[in-house]
Design a protein around this nucleic acid. Sequence first.
DNA 1: TTGTAGGCGTTATCAT
DNA 2: ATGATAACGCCTACAA
Lengths: 324, 324
Amino acid sequence: MARVAGVSQATVSLVLGGKWHGRVSERTAQAVRDAAGGLGYRPNLAARSLRLGATRTALLVVPALTHEYFARVYAGAARVADEHGFGVVLYPSPAGVGPARDPFGSARAAIDGVIASSMAADALTGIGDGGLPLVMLDSDPGVPGGPPTVNLAVADGMRRITRHLVALGHRRIAHIASDVDAWTFRVRTDAVAAELAAAGLPAPGRFVSALHVTAGRDAAVRALSAPGPRPTALLCDDDILAAGACKGARALGLRVPDDVSVSGFDDLSLATALDPELTTVRLPAESIGEHGMTALLALLAGRPAPPVELPLTLVPRASTAPAP
Amino acid sequence: MARVAGVSQATVSLVLGGKWHGRVSERTAQAVRDAAGGLGYRPNLAARSLRLGATRTALLVVPALTHEYFARVYAGAARVADEHGFGVVLYPSPAGVGPARDPFGSARAAIDGVIASSMAADALTGIGDGGLPLVMLDSDPGVPGGPPTVNLAVADGMRRITRHLVALGHRRIAHIASDVDAWTFRVRTDAVAAELAAAGLPAPGRFVSALHVTAGRDAAVRALSAPGPRPTALLCDDDILAAGACKGARALGLRVPDDVSVSGFDDLSLATALDPELTTVRLPAESIGEHGMTALLALLAGRPAPPVELPLTLVPRASTAPAP
DNA sequence: TTGTAGGCGTTATCAT
DNA sequence: ATGATAACGCCTACAA
């Protein structure tokens, strides 16, 4: 490459690195660029990484990619990364929660830092973050000396949707809860209970379900056919569960929202694909990804990354109505 | 590292590379492993790549990650890659179709090959695959000397669902078609028309829509309120459009499937989240990802990668019923 | 304004 | 059975 341009390696590096101003003549620079174009030259990134000691690549660890939420977190992180010349590699932790296989053990892209989304704190120790800069998204903010966090105001969102239902006159509310043992879901259970207690209402029945439509439907059927007065609202931990809950209600001959109100959480595209559209809470998924990447970049630059908490928005739609 | 173990670099490399049998004494090997463990040693992948000339990393180019289909393709590709010690980096081509920004221009992971999913053939030229091994998924199989392809039997799937509707007695069928100009959608239009012609039925009205629920709903409303006799079935290019179509039908006071049958395509999780559940065609998304990665590995090993076509499955569910 | 040279961490070859 | 050594391609002081 340097040979073809008739100059030395150093000159090529300078020109292509964009820092030749006042150090290489314009004529020579142009010759180098022509040669590069002609040869279809592509810098060897491995060599560059080796020399620079950095790869300009971040690893995003998510429990499951098929959940739209994580795809959006990735999109946000990738956008910010791209603006700074970084790449983002995805590592869908197979176990979901629990210690993941070490993504560094096998041969994969070398990385400068890790962003972990919605993972249990201890699941990351399994990842063997050997001194690698780490940012945690949507996870337990408890640890003071721990990694920087970017969190969602999940508790506040859950309280808002609870208040929404209470304001509609609902007094018997069942909580269709995810069975995933993660901070984000524990918080939701506590927030619902606290808000109902504050309103002087009885504690909600809690029906645990896997994060699938069919499991959500079954949980809703259990909730609606439990002994005692029937709930008039199903408050679900997730839009997917809410979709199942709607099906469960209809399977029992109940109409949504006339007989039973149903609320979701996440504002996935699913929420507006359903009929009636779901009342839900919007999570700024892209935004959390962007903030996560920004925090990691700060860490990499030696700057502090203050904790962030992003607000959630209640999105009232047609699946909730005044209590019958 | 070599110093700590009291041996030479070469010995370390041999032991950690797992090819020391009969070349390094058991005692020395153990010492090396102990030292590695104690130091939390991590091989520098950049250096390895530089030396080996390969990165054991593939790039998967997709038009959009938020579509569940591509998340599943990724999952399949990543699974096979992992089995072979490869990583997969995702590149969501911003434009969807059309020339993408060059992912190699900016600093990102060095890669050994590219898998492109559902991309227009010319969109890849913009990607500047400078001699990089390339596999195309779900794209125009036309070119004989072109890259290996892994395709879906899209035309066959579309014909099957058309036959399904015809068998249910539908005679007036409207096609809710995606506005994306890609091979996979052009094939669908042709297949529907061909199958209806073969059955001696009139050509379907074709209503073009963006790949969103609301756009699908609008297209369905147009289809159902067009002059002339009302269609009794809406054959949609995608589950997302079908979800919109159901909403459109209901907005006009029609019941699904009693008054209008609706069919989808993809078998996303959305298909069973809806009520009634969608009759659709299942795409083996993971499988196509797996085959794509397998083909790329073959290419990388200098082996030929014969074209693959994967069959689709008709999944009859509750959104289609006999014509009224 | 341009060229020379050294070294990043790894693997492979060859010598000991 | 083990150690010395030379590359891989790039960047960057420093020399010319």
